[in-house]
Design a binder for these strands. Sequence first.
DNA 1: CAAACATATTGACATCGGTCGATATATCCG
DNA 2: CGGATATATCGACCGATGTCAATATGTTTG
Lengths: 102, 102
Amino acid sequence: MAEPCCVPITTSQLSESEADTLASLLKALADPVRLRIVSIIANCGEACACDLPAVLGRSQPTVSHHLSLLVSAGILDREQRGKWAWFKLNRDRIGSITAALA
Amino acid sequence: MAEPCCVPITTSQLSESEADTLASLLKALADPVRLRIVSIIANCGEACACDLPAVLGRSQPTVSHHLSLLVSAGILDREQRGKWAWFKLNRDRIGSITAALA
DNA sequence: CAAACATATTGACATCGGTCGATATATCCG
DNA sequence: CGGATATATCGACCGATGTCAATATGTTTG
């Protein structure tokens, strides 16, 4: 079960700060490149940053930017393995979004 | 049950165009003012545009802009009653977002 | 029709956000 | 240590977006 990081939209009226919090989380997902990153990781279980620029058709700095944004939002977890960075999905965080929209 | 307007993130890998579609829908929700509009309407069942500028602390043109954006995204339905515009929530559309993130 | 009121559109402005090339930092390996 | 490789940061560019004042459009009513 996801943690209640966001107040559900439909059960009580969102305050300004609650709306800000949920909006930031949604913004983190609301980009095609980031959605594809999340989708890839959700399917493969994890992904190495080194493979993503080729798959996504974006430069290494751009991919790095999106990855760190997703980590900041709590959607991905980062793990350093040697010189590679691996990422996996924080499913509770996704769950908290769907819970807020339920 | 919501219509499957978006492909689930976690069950198959999103194509570029599927990611574009879902991202547009998420973008429509990913704003604090729009989230508060949706929250108000979800709780009250419906809302008149005339009441929203005061509640939201935004100008009438700004509120009108957000409302038409939400209608374009299919999240709200608009109904003209005399000179007033009333809006209600398209819950299937919200459901299709949560389904895509499930 | 004309006045009054509700909503939409326009235009302008400032800020945000995605992108890349260049460069810095970090890690491994010989 | 020093070269090679992986990732992050910086700086710049440009299009997208939220906002409001001014104005236009549309609807009711006298």
